[in-house]
């Protein structure tokens, strides 16, 4: 079948009007409405910001974890905290920001999130950027399977997610699960010294 030649009219200003007549497709209606309301993805990243967890005495700089060969590339991440590319890039954005940190940087050598499992609900996580402290309170902590990537994409810019490895498998010699900690923004304040 040959290509159908059509005069391709430009999309009207403001985008096409969405008409969703079928009530059973409510999820698409809601998504399309949200998509129309949301602007283009925000530029920038948390690169250069800082993450602090006072309850486990953790304070580290943030760097971007890019994607290479279809996987997040942690080759350059050691004792820093990594911001996962494609997740939320700022507090209050469309998506929650997701950060990763090593549980160990070598056999027997602690990483920045070695003690993440020791945190409790209500503990504070501080995201420090641009002279402002965004203070989050831990709301949930649970283990997930390594392929449960969608858990990182929370459509709530008021939330923040931390992920690290957990559940060392002595037989297989690797971590079989990932520990996810989800926190919610409770307040902001000027960073100390600003």
């Amino acid at each position: 079948m040959g290509t159908i030649a059509c005069a391709q009219a430009p999309t009207p200003a403001g985008g096409p009007t969405l008409v969703v007549p079928n009530a059973s497709q409510a999820w698409l209606r809601d998504y399309a409405t949200a998509q129309a309301a949301a602007g283009p993805p925000q530029a920038g990243s948390p690169e250069g910001a800082r993450l602090l967890i006072p309850s486990i005495k953790m304070a580290d700089d943030i760097q971007t974890v890019s994607i290479s060969a279809g996987l997040w590339d942690l080759a350059s991440l050691h004792s820093e905290i990594g911001w996962l590319l494609t997740t939320g890039n700022r507090p209050g954005g469309d998506l929650a920001m997701a950060f990763v940190g090593h549980v160990t940087v070598a056999a027997g050598v602690r990483g920045p999130l070695t003690d993440l499992w020791k945190t409790s609900l209500g503990d504070e996580i501080i995201y420090r950027a641009g002279g402002t402290d965004y203070i989050y309170s831990i709301q949930a902590k649970y283990a997930v399977q390594p392929d449960d990537v969608q858990k990182l994409y929370v459509k709530d810019g008021q939330r923040l997610i931390l992920v690290t490895c957990t559940d060392w498998n002595y037989v297989a010699g690797r971590y079989s699960e990932r520990l996810l900690v989800q926190a919610e923004l409770v307040r902001t304040q000027p960073s100390p010294g600003t």
Partner: peptide
């Protein structure tokens, strides 16, 4: 020749969470 078009884009993401353990920890 009355025409219109609409585009959609889906961000692709890795198929698995990152591996953040380079060996057993002190407790292990």
């Amino acid at each position: 020749n009355h025409c219109a078009q609409s585009a959609s884009a889906v961000t692709t993401i890795p198929g698995s969470l990152p591996v953040t353990g380079e060996g057993p920890g002190p407790n292990e």
